[in-house]
Design a protein around this nucleic acid. Structure first.
Lengths: 341, 341
DNA sequence: ATGAAAGCGCTAACAG
DNA sequence: CTGTTAGCGCTTTCAT
C-alpha cells in the first residue's frame, strides 16, 4: 500500500505497469494530448496518486523541446526596484504556467572561456528576459542569431539585432519633472545625481534633464552633474562633497529614489532645510518615497508593469514568434513636498 | 567558417564530428571527468568555439541526475524583505555554481488534482528552499519521504519530518525590544501589531512581547493586539481604528518595519507626535528604517544572512546528505529615536 | 587516452 | 482509443 517506501524514483513506466497500460497512455492522460477512455484514464490517475508520481521535468524538456520556464538574467544589484520588477515578471509567468529561472550574474556575463556555458539557455528555458547590462553584447547577438526568444528590459538591443525591448519613458518623465522645478519654483541651479555608468534609464533621465534646461534657456553646467549610482550612500557622499566645495544649487534631481533618499539624509546632516534651502526630487516612486520627510516629489515609473510586460512579450514571442520591438511605458509626475510644493 | 548560419541546435555530436573524436571525449573535456590528451582537448575546444556549442542543460540533467540548480518556493508576497533574502540566496547559489529557480505560488501550493505537478521538483532542481507557507504540509512530508533535499526558511517542519530549518531569534529580539520600552521609557500600555496569520516570525515576536510584559509584571491585554499584516496600509488602518475607539497606549510595537512605517504615517495624520505622544518600534531594520522621521527603533534581523545560510545548508545537504536541523540567527536591538531615546 | 553503447524519463510519430 | 518505437542530448560504464 502507500506505506511502501520508494527510494528510487517513480517513473512513467511504474505508473504504466501499475495501471496496466502503456507509457504512451499515461503520457496522454497527463498531457491531455489525445483522447483516452474514461475508465482507462481513471485507472491511470489512481496509479499516479497511489505511486505518488511526478513527471521528470528534464526528461520532458528533452523530449518535447520545451521547458515551460522563463529565464531572467540580472546583474548583481538586488534593490527595491528589482523586487517590484520581479513581482511583475513572476506574476505573469506563473499566470501563464511558466516557472521563472533566475540567474544573478555578479557583474556582466561574458563568454570568456571555452567551458563557459550560459547558465540559462535553450536547455533549461524557453526564452530569456535580460535586465540591463547582465549579458555581454556578443553573447546577446549570438543567442539572437540562434533565434532564441529574448526580451531586453531597460536596455536597447545591440545594433543590427532586432530584439524586443521594454522600458520607461524616462526622458519625458525627467523633462516634465525638471520643467516643474523650473517653472513652478523658479530654480535655476539644478544639480543632477546620475545613476550607474552605462545604465540607460539614467542616461535618458539625464537627457530629459538637459532638455528641460535647454527649453528654458538655462545653460548646462557639467559641474552640476555627479554620480549618485542609484545608491543612497554614494549619493550622500556626493552631496557632502558638493557642500564642502561650496557648490551653489537650489535643487537636486536624483536619478532614482534611492539616491534621493541619500541626498535628503546628507542635506539634513549638514543642517539644510528641505525644500527651503535645497529642493530634492527623485525618480521611480518606490515604497519609501512618500514616507520620507518631506514626502518626495518624484516621477512614478510603472516598474511592476514593466516586468509584467517583459514576461508577456516573451511569452508571446515564444508562442507566436512575434513581439513588439519596443514597449515604452509612460511615466507620471508625482508632486509631493520635497520640491517646495 | 563562422558565417554559417546554424538554425538547428548544435549538439555534442556536431562537436565530436568536427573535432574528429567521439562524443565521450567531448564530454570529458567539458566536464574534466577523465584525462584527455592535450592535443585532442585543444581540437575539441576549438570545435566548441567554432561551432558555438552550448551543452543542453536538460539532457545533462537527465543523464547525470543532477541539475546544478536550487529551487526557491515563495508565496506571492514580494516585498523589501524578500528582496534582501533573495540577494543572500542568489549570491550563495551563484558562488557555488548553482542557478536559482524561483516559483512564486500565488498562495499555498497544494496537491489538489492528479495532474498537479509541483513546478519545482526532482526533475529540475537538486533541492528546494521553502519559504514560510508556500508549500502544503502534506506535500512537504511527501517530498521529504522521497529524501528530496529541502530546507525551510522561516517555518518549522511538520511534526515527524526532520527538515532543516533556518530562521531568526525572533522571540529574544522582541523581548529585548519590549523590555527596553518598559525599562528605559517606562511605557506600560504597549500595543502589538501582529503579522499575517500563521506567520511564524510574527508568532515568536508576539511571544517575546508577551514574555517581556510578564517579566515586568504588566498584565497582557488582548485589546492591545491587532493585525498589521506586515503591511503599511493594514497597519495604518488598525492604528486609525484604535485612535477612533479612543484606545489608550503609549507605545506601539509593530511586528515588522513595514507596519511600523504605516503606524508612523497614521499617527502623524492624526496629529500625534512621535515619540512624545506615542512611541513606535518595528522589527527587521530594512533599508527605510533609518530614513523615517523619527528614525525607527527596531530589531535588526540578518535577512540576507538567513537567505545565504539557507542556500548554504541546502547545498551542504545535497553534497553530504547532512545539515543542521535548526539554524537560529541572532537579532540585535537597534535603538534610534522613535522609541523616545 | 579514447571509443562504443547503454540508458536517463519522457514525448511524439506511427501503427493498428 | 491504445501500444510500439524511435529518439531528445548527454553522461557513464565498460572495453580497448
Amino acid at each position: 500500500m502507500s506505506k511502501t517506501i520508494l527510494l528510487s524514483r517513480v517513473t512513467i513506466n511504474d505508473v504504466a505497469a501499475y495501471a496496466g497500460v502503456s507509457i504512451a497512455t499515461v503520457s496522454r492522460v497527463i498531457n491531455k494530448t489525445d483522447p483516452v477512455a474514461a475508465k482507462t484514464a481513471e485507472r491511470v490517475r489512481a496509479a499516479i496518486l497511489e505511486l505518488d508520481y511526478t513527471p521528470h521535468a528534464a526528461a520532458r524538456g528533452l523530449a518535447s523541446r520545451k521547458t515551460k520556464t522563463l529565464g531572467l538574467l540580472l546583474p548583481d544589484i538586488i534593490d527595491p526596484f528589482l523586487s517590484i520588477l520581479l513581482r511583475g515578471i513572476a506574476a505573469c509567468a506563473t499566470e501563464n504556467g511558466y516557472a521563472l529561472l533566475i540567474y544573478a550574474s555578479q557583474g556582466q556575463l561574458k563568454r570568456d572561456s571555452v567551458d563557459f556555458s550560459l547558465p540559462l539557455n535553450e536547455g533549461n528555458t524557453d526564452g530569456l528576459i535580460v535586465f540591463t547590462e547582465s549579458l555581454d553584447e556578443a553573447e546577446l547577438t549570438r543567442l539572437h542569431r540562434r533565434q532564441f526568444p529574448m526580451v531586453l528590459l531597460h536596455k536597447s538591443p545591440p545594433v543590427g539585432a532586432n530584439i524586443p525591448c521594454v522600458t520607461f519613458e524616462n526622458k519625458e518623465g525627467a523633462r516634465k519633472l525638471v520643467e516643474h522645478l523650473i517653472t513652478a519654483h523658479n530654480y535655476r541651479r539644478i544639480a543632477f545625481l546620475a545613476g550607474p555608468k552605462g545604465n540607460e534609464d539614467s542616461y535618458w533621465r539625464e537627457m530629459g534633464y538637459r532638455e528641460a534646461l535647454e527649453i528654458h534657456g538655462i545653460p548646462f553646467d557639467p559641474a552640476l552633474v555627479a554620480p549618485g549610482n542609484f545608491d543612497d550612500e554614494v549619493a550622500g557622499a556626493t552631496v557632502e562633497q558638493w557642500l564642502k566645495e561650496g557648490m551653489a544649487f537650489d535643487a537636486i534631481f536624483a536619478a532614482d529614489d534611492n539616491s534621493a533618499t541619500g541626498t535628503i539624509a546628507a542635506l539634513r546632516r549638514a543642517g539644510k532645510r528641505i525644500p527651503e534651502d535645497v529642493a530634492v526630487a527623485g525618480f521611480d516612486d518606490v515604497f519609501l518615497s512618500h514616507h520620507l520627510t518631506p514626502p518626495l516629489t518624484t516621477v512614478r515609473a510603472p516598474i511592476e508593469k514593466s516586468g509584467q510586460k517583459a514576461a508577456e512579450q516573451l511569452i508571446q514571442l515564444i508562442h507566436t514568434g512575434q513581439a513588439s520591438s519596443l514597449t515604452l511605458l509612460p511615466t507620471e509626475l508625482v508632486i509631493r513636498h520635497s520640491c517646495g510644493c
